[in-house]
Design a protein around this nucleic acid. Structure first.
Length: 448
RNA sequence: CGGGGUGUAGCGCAGUCUGGUAGCGCAUCAGUUUUGGGAACUGGAGGUCGUUGGUUCGAAUCCAAUCACCCCGACCA
């Protein structure tokens, strides 16, 4: 992308509405624009990041065997009346009425809708297990939205729902989700710790929240610090292997890790020695639930089991806050100059700075490098604006592009351009020829 | 929803106490000179001072109502 043709409304000054780092940086980097309290437009740069995260989430879901579909944002009130949640959900649910006076709502979650879909098509245990998911905008009319996309009213969420024949099978689905979530967060460059959680309005007995430690987090968490050394790794695993999933879940959930809702100081002291006790603020980036037949019973989601009996399916639901993750990643990856995107979610991978627009050779070499990187799918963004070099450096650092190639007469005299790593500041001079090779050799080392 | 704060140009702010018809920095537009860490000069454009009503000869300024946004709390992916 050429900056002269792009729409990148960066701000030099921090809008007064923002308090926390990620919100300030998202506004300054021109990623979002508030439409009204807790509701944002995603500007081109922000959208690219959002979509990259979405892509990773989808890939990991499909890898775990979960099936994508897409449900609407608007739902009929009647479904929620059937489950009994229409009255329970309260003011957080945005209720709407259409021209025929029918009661609708902007979905805060989709248990009812998915159960309806499931029950009208699945009748036999032979079709189980089944896990369906989608990534869709949700709306929860928070009393007090804040922190930008971290706590908006409208938010993008991946929510998935598993259907199993009995509790044992559903627990495996629960475990499978935990494993795939751990993998997803790790790919995104985040250390997310599963913590025992309250089930809230979703209901049920089993639930874990995934929390990323950050000073600006909304929850206070208590955990065994040794969990921080755990690495999921990228090794292949079989999501259908019940024992393998269970052992991973055990490893991650046996050490003490709880939010303030479920924290118990006595247990904490008994299970974790003083030196290993960790207390921190944290951002919740996902949650998984097993709730059995809470929805399948009232909504009549029955299947025939192997004995020919009609039984309600066992269900769970699972959410990843996709739009919130954008903020969470920035909280984890930034410095005083701006964002430092992990390369897997970076909106562009390489920024090209033409340091002297008046210099003919600089322009030619910049153009050539831009075209080469583009053709190699290395997602370059070329700052071809007629600006001072300093201004371009600052913009590139603010928007967090992982690699920067600086082209200018100083280097070109020696036949080199400067390659700078946003993550650690390392810079090397590289020959102007075959930049694509050089970049490919650099690999994905930004998460290390 | 309780408590507090703020609304003045795209962004950041001053002016409000003490009423006299709006200003600064950045951004923006034109031109010239510049050009490796947010350039300089010259000239220009841009504001129903959140909204409505009131007081007054006169309101950004005083009074009232209202709306919006932000912060602290209680609640949530």
């Amino acid at each position: 992308m050429r900056m002269t043709r792009y729409f990148l409304p960066v701000l030099r000054e921090i809008p007064s509405e923002a308090q926390i780092t990620s919100h300030k940086l998202m506004l300054r980097a021109g990623m979002i624009k508030q439409a009204v309290s807790g509701i944002y437009s995603w500007m081109p740069l922000g959208l690219r990041v959002l979509q990259k995260i979405e892509r990773i989430v989808i890939e990991e879901q499909e890898r775990a065997g979960h099936i994508p579909l897409l449900m609407p944002t608007i739902q009929p009130a009647s479904l929620w009346q059937k489950s009994g949640r229409y009255d329970d959900y309260g003011e957080e649910m945005l209720r709407i009425r259409d021209r025929h006076n029918r009661d609708l709502l902007y979905g805060p979650t989709n248990e009812e809708l998915i159960t309806e879909i499931f029950s009208s098509h699945v009748k036999s245990y032979r079709d189980l297990p089944l896990t369906l998911f989608h990534i869709q905008w949700k709306f929860r009319d928070e009393m007090r939205p804040r922190f930008g996309v971290m706590r908006g009213r409208e938010f993008l969420m991946k929510d998935g729902y598993n259907f199993d024949i009995d509790m044992d099978a559903a627990i495996h689905s629960y475990n499978r989700h935990m494993v795939s979530y751990l993998k997803t967060y790790e790919r995104l460059g985040l250390k997310a710790i599963p913590m025992r959680a309250d089930t809230g309005p979703i209901g049920g007995k089993y639930s874990h929240e995934f929390l990323v430690l950050a000073d600006t987090g909304e929850s206070e968490v208590f955990f065994d610090k040794r969990i921080l050394n755990y690495n999921f790794g990228i090794s292949e695993l079989n999501f259908d292997d019940i024992d393998e999933c269970q052992s991973i879940v055990d490893k991650w959930t046996i050490p003490y890790a709880r939010t303030d809702e479920t924290h118990d100081q006595e247990t904490f002291d008994r299970e974790v020695s003083q030196e290993h006790q960790g207390i921190s603020r944290a951002i919740e980036v996902g949650q998984i639930f097993y709730f059995g037949t809470k929805y399948s019973e009232p909504m009549g989601a029955l299947v025939t089991n192997s004995e020919g009996m009609h039984v309600p399916v066992h269900m769970g639901s699972h959410g990843i806050g996709v739009s919130r993750l954008v903020g969470a990643i920035i909280e984890a990856y930034h410095d005083e100059k701006g964002i430092k995107w992990p390369i897997v979610v970076a909106p562009y991978k390489v920024g090209i700075i033409n340091a002297v627009m008046g210099d003919k050779e600089s322009c030619e070499v910049s153009e050539r490098i831009y075209n080469e990187l583009n053709n190699a799918n290395l997602e370059p963004i070329y700052d071809d604006r007629d600006e001072r070099a300093g201004s371009k450096f600052n913009t590139m650092e603010l928007i967090g592009i992982p690699w920067r190639i600086t082209v200018g007469p100083r280097g070109l005299k020696k036949g080199v351009v400067e390659l700078t790593n946003r993550y650690n500041g390392d810079r090397v001079e590289v020959p102007t020829g075959n930049i694509v090779n050089t970049m490919n050799k650099m690999g994905d080392c930004i998460l290390d």
